[in-house]
Nucleic acid binder design. Structure first.
Length: 186
DNA sequence: CGAGACCATCGCG
DNA sequence: CGCGATGGTCTCG
């Protein structure tokens, strides 16, 4: 029964050629890190729960992020606001978001990590890596991570994935990265 | 106030 | 397909 868990390079190539939505770059080492389920993290595909999100400057000034026990910075709110613009059933990438606020993808990831407003109104599960890979969730990346829940949430919204954790279609049936951010109201 | 650490990435070799 | 480079932010002393 025991089979190799790593994915043969050929399969990866096939995946890239036929389905890779964004770049046709070769899959990276992270692909070999599947599966993504973690026994210690309960399954959760809820995409409806609505957290209270401080909108006004005053409210934001006093809000304490329960995840960090700290206030959120201006930049963090900016990124969260941006993320909140992603329509249901669509996804965007860390890079797109970074471009939108003149930041870097890693900084975006950093904010997603501490996002206390998941899954609403800040649907951080709709942010994937630039090549369509599901990426990280819940503070972890790839395998050790808990992509299962991120994936479950997206599937519930109508997105499709292949066996390796790459998105192949959003709700519309195609895959196109959402990048139409309105940065004017940040 | 400054330096160092961190990262749910990227893209090149 | 692996690995190092890189940018920006956060944290702590």
């Amino acid at each position: 029964m025991a089979k190799a868990k790593t994915i043969p390079a050929k399969s990866l190539q096939a995946i890239q050629e036929s389905k890779a939505p964004v770049n046709k770059k070769a899959a990276r080492s992270r692909v070999g890190k599947l599966p993504d389920a973690r026994a210690d993290v309960p399954f959760d595909d809820d995409v409806a729960e609505l957290k209270i999100y401080p909108r006004t400057v005053e409210d934001r000034a006093v809000y304490i992020n329960p995840k960090t026990n700290r206030k959120l910075t201006e930049f963090q709110f900016k990124v969260l606001d941006l993320c909140a613009q992603i329509p249901k059933g669509k996804v965007t990438t860390y890079k797109k978001m970074a471009d939108a606020v003149n930041s870097s993808p890693r900084a975006i990831g950093g904010v997603m990590r501490i996002n206390p407003f998941c899954p609403q109104p800040v649907p951080c599960h709709r942010v994937v890596a630039s090549d369509g890979f599901l990426g990280g969730f819940n503070g972890q990346w790839g395998a050790g991570g808990n992509m299962r829940n991120k994936r479950a949430k997206l599937e519930k919204e109508g997105c499709k994935f292949n066996a390796d954790g790459f998105i192949v279609a959003d709700k519309s049936g195609d895959f196109n990265v959402f990048g139409d951010f309105d940065t004017s109201k940040l």
